[in-house]
Amino acid sequence: MGYGMVIDQQLCVGCAACTIACKIENNTPVGFNWCDKITRTSGKFPAVRYEYISTMCNHCDNAPCVAACPTQAMYKDRQTGLTLHDTNKCIGCKACIVSCPYGVISFNWERPHQHWAQRDRLAEGCFSPREMLEESGGEGSPHGNPERGTTYPVVRPAGSVEKCTFCDHRLVKGLAPACVDACPSGARQFGDIDDPNSEVSKLVARHGGKGLREELGTRPRVIYIRDYKPQRRFEPARPAGENQGA
């Protein structure tokens, strides 16, 4: 058993709903995106090509961040295949950031969300950030999602790194990661990629697909299938009759 994600580049419209859903679900600080993007523009007018690649932690099987972490704060969960992080053990050495070839780990240089502690009101009669926080009852920010706190702190401490967990707090409840549920085009599929009979494995078997920078030997668990081609706009990822989308 090991979770993995398949992203169908033919279906992804680059709307960034995954990025926004992740921010809301995981209460990430300003400037941090656990789920982000790489964009590439190539070619010459009129034959210009624009690529949008949704990115996040690849939960690599052979994870350089785990090998580099001196305290095992970054670790592989044997049951699920996830690369997870324990803020209690993190000494903030940033070896994981330097070692991850995908640039998906962020470091809390200072206490996150501290602007929500400000008491100054922008104008008379409106809420101060602090009052909004108290009114909403959120932890750290009004968007603090208490369910996030069941497996990872809602507000990660200053001096610690943070990154995507594939929404492990949702997985234990049988839900898909927030980015998968938010995707309007069903480009993201999630499941047990170690099981050859799972939906995600079948998609990979049908379309080939590969992870980012596989040549490095990291064995990523996020697999991209079907480069976007306008001529196959209406071609389904799976044969008729099979369930489409998330």
Partner: peptide
């Protein structure tokens, strides 16, 4: 270093694969 107090984990939870 971000969290000096967590340095104890270097001893309690060592990772010999880490340079």
């Amino acid at each position: 270093l971000g969290s000096l107090l967590n340095m104890v984990w270097i001893l309690l939870s060592p990772n010999p694969s880490s340079p």
